[in-house]
Design a protein around this nucleic acid. Structure first.
Lengths: 247, 247
DNA sequence: TGTTATTTGTTCGTATGTATG
DNA sequence: TCATACATACGAACAAATAAC
């Protein structure tokens, strides 16, 4: 089931600890017992406990702070491990996948949002609006899309989609690509696109949400003219979806 | 940069080992030096080496066999860690993301395929055809889509997309969902859809490829009537893309 | 078949640095 | 400033599994 190599005892220790986390016995934010305590309780040596904890840390489930203890960060192994892996792909590959996920997120969000989701979306949009309004030069405000897109992914109700979008955003942040987009794109136009997207989602117009998100990403990718592959890809979706855009 | 907690020295050791793997100094299948050798060479304790190796093993990059040594399994951390993580999501979430990725793969494949890709696609389609032709009841042949879709993802030229699609397929296999689809779906109809998809890709018709893939996934999802959420989602994409389908 | 060398698995002891009070 | 607790870090030692002779 698991790719884990290594010894039986260390693997057993790892699954025992992981079971306590995913079962909720050690909730997120909780500090787990110290290494000697776990060593005595589980009947294994400290080094074995340490290796198991280190594996949990590389899976992103716990974080150990020097001289403070080990804290639960996630009940699942999914989110944080993706980030490191994503750094080995090219920006073109990252944005290609991001477009796929964001379009799916937009249409699922339009279909599945709840009141809480909609409120989060509207407050995220309001925060962006405020940033632009307070800026000296509104067009150059340099708004980051990540938050708004993350909230949309959350509204989709698909946790996997949300996790992937979040980690992809972090990878794009790390690569500096999001900065280039934010710098090159007109913030007022960006906000207008977000606003239309929000309107479509609120109206539960699934097709419009998907289409607007595709257009939104295309306009972002067009700001990255340095990379010819990206602009080529950016030209694709509009051709495949030539329906007039609803207001 | 890294989510990894733990000490600076252990993290540094991990980076040094990982660099040797991703740089190709230790190619896949290669046995890396023993723990005492690495300990002496890197100037750190054997415990520290062991923790770094255990982290690499958790990431799926190496596998250590008792008393035999540690072997390189992957030059990147991406593939294997996804599989384990995906098991914690619901089938609905998995197929939702799969739809997004497969549609993107289809349109990118139509835009980017090379001669080798096209040949692989055609031989995969031919193999499916042969399976159905040799079956006693062609409609109940139970063809697995995974291979054909995997080749499409490869033809997209996007390695991340390919890795995600492959691991998602494995997760769906593990959940038994692919079996349910293969059993419930008419194999002749499935092959016809694959054939039209291949035609669109060969013609570099990006829009048709995206649309046909969306329709293809929808018809698969409709075979899973047990889950109302899936059928609801399955109805979405055609509405958002009502253009007449090219032959 | 069995002996031996090699390598990983596991435990323990101890030293060191750091955060907290 | 000092004391305590905790985590990191190293190394020694033995156990267990494997391969080669």
């Amino acid at each position: 089931m698991n790719q884990s190599s290594g010894s039986a005892l260390a693997r057993l220790t790892l699954s025992r600890l992981r079971a306590r986390i995913s079962s909720g016995e050690w909730p997120i934010g909780c500090r787990i017992p110290t290494e000697p305590e776990l060593s005595a309780e589980l009947g294994v040596g400290r080094s074995t406990v340490r290796e198991a904890i280190r594996s949990l840390a590389t899976l992103g489930m716990v974080e150990t702070l020097t001289a403070r203890g080990t804290f639960v960060r996630s009940s699942t192994a999914a989110p944080s491990l993706l980030l490191d892996a994503l750094s080995s792909y090219s920006p073109t590959e990252l944005v290609g996948v991001r477009r796929a996920l964001d379009v799916e997120a937009a249409q699922s969000a339009a279909a599945n949002w709840t009141r809480e989701h909609l409120e989060a979306l509207e407050s995220a949009a309001a925060a962006e609006m405020e940033t632009v309004r307070d800026a000296a030069d509104p067009s150059r405000a340099g708004v980051r899309c990540s938050l708004f897109h993350g909230v949309i992914a959350q509204a989709s109700g698909n946790r996997l989609l949300f996790d992937l979008v979040q980690n992809l955003s972090m990878a794009l942040d790390a690569s500096g690509l999001n900065d280039r987009i934010a710098e090159n794109m007109d913030a007022v136009a960006l906000l207008s696109e977000h606003d239309r997207l929000l309107t479509a989602i609120r109206a539960r117009d699934v097709g419009a949400a998907a289409h607007l998100m595709a257009l939104h990403l295309d306009s972002q990718m067009r700001t990255l003219t340095q990379d010819p592959v990206m602009t080529e890809l950016a030209a694709l979706r509009p051709d495949s979806n030539p329906r007039p855009m609803p207001a």
